[in-house]
Structure formats: C-alpha cells, structure tokens
Amino acid sequence: MKIFSYLYRIDFSVHTMEVRLQLWDTAGQERFRSLIPSYIRDSTIAVVVYDITNLNSFQQTSKWIDDVRTERGSDVIIMLVGNKTDLADKRQITTEEGEQRAKELNVMFIETSAKTGYNVKQLFRRVAAALPGMDSTPEKSKEDMIDIKLEKPPELPVTESSCSC
C-alpha cells in the first residue's frame, strides 16, 4: 500500500508589534500630583480612571487630563475610564455623562470593572489600536480577500506492479 503525503504551504504576512507597558497608579491622590511629570514624561498613553460610584473622582478627571496635556501637549493618547461597573446599583455618574466629558475633553472613553474584568481587555485593545503606526482601518473588504480551499487530491489507484518509490 502506498502512502501519499501532501504538503500545502501558504504564506501569510503577519505583523506583530511588541508593546511595553508601564502602569503608574496614583489612585487620584493629591500627594502624587507632583510626580505626574516624571510619570508621563516619556509616555504615549494616559489612562485616567474614575470611580462611577464617586462623583468627586469624576470631577477630578478634568484636572488630571489637564496635567497630562500640560506635560505632553497634544502628543498623547488619553483614555477616560469609568471603573466599577460591577457596582451599578451605587452608580453616581451615568455612562452618558462619562461619554459627554470625554467628548468635551477630546479623549477616548470606556467603562470597565477591574473586579470582574469587564471591558479591561477592550480598553487595552482600543488604546493599542490608537498608537501611532497601528492600522486602525477596518478589515479588508470581501472583494480584497482570497478564498483558499484545501482539498485532498483524489487518491491514485494502487496496483501490484506499481513502483514503491
């Protein structure tokens, strides 16, 4: 009996980007305000987080974003994040208010729950997609795609006199 082996080779162009993240958590505390310049001096991204159950933390976001822009100018990606969506019954800031603040400040917006993990991966995906050099164009259209079907070729009949080479 003959065994046929077929090798299909398909080359795909895969682009991988390695991103190093340094996360500095000041917890919104005033005592860390003087450290902001050293935290963000070489940063490309700033994530400003507020607690959706704490109106004061939301009100402070404008000041934190101003501090980031004072240090980095417009050369920074800023994401405003409403956290603790798992505590919806204690919510003091609506999603719409968060979206409106983000629009006023010209920053990105998302709500998350660090406790449950809700939208945390999405937060980092959106931030990474906004990085310079990342392609944020929509996926290729259907007409630009190539459909590849791999089918096993029909087996050739094996006879007693067939060569085994």
Rank of each mutant, 00 (worst) to 15 (best):
A46Y: 01
A27R: 07
K115W: 07
G117K: 08
P138T: 07
K103P: 04
I36T: 05
I65W: 02
T44P: 07
K115S: 08
L123M: 14
A102C: 06
Q100C: 10
Q59R: 15
A27I: 06
V19H: 04
R125H: 10
K142Q: 10
L80Y: 01
D25L: 01
N54D: 13
I78R: 00
A88H: 09
K103S: 15
Y50G: 05
K121Q: 12
S74E: 08
S43T: 10
A129D: 12
M17H: 14
R126L: 08
I77E: 01
F109R: 04
S136Y: 13
K90G: 06
D86V: 00
R126F: 06
T44A: 14
L21Y: 12
A88K: 13
R69G: 00
A128N: 10
N56P: 05
F32V: 02
D11R: 15
Y39N: 02
L105E: 04
Q122V: 13
H15W: 15
K115C: 05
S43I: 13
S141C: 10
V14N: 08
R33W: 03
N83E: 00
K142C: 09
F32Y: 14
S141D: 11
S13A: 13
R72D: 04
G133K: 00
N106M: 11
V19P: 03
L55D: 08
F32D: 03
I36L: 08
A130W: 05
E104G: 07
R72N: 06
P132K: 15
K140H: 13
D42M: 10
N83M: 01
Q59N: 15
L55I: 10
G73L: 07
M17D: 11
A102W: 00
E18Q: 15
S13V: 11
V127A: 12
V81L: 02
R72E: 07
N83T: 01
S74A: 08
E104C: 11
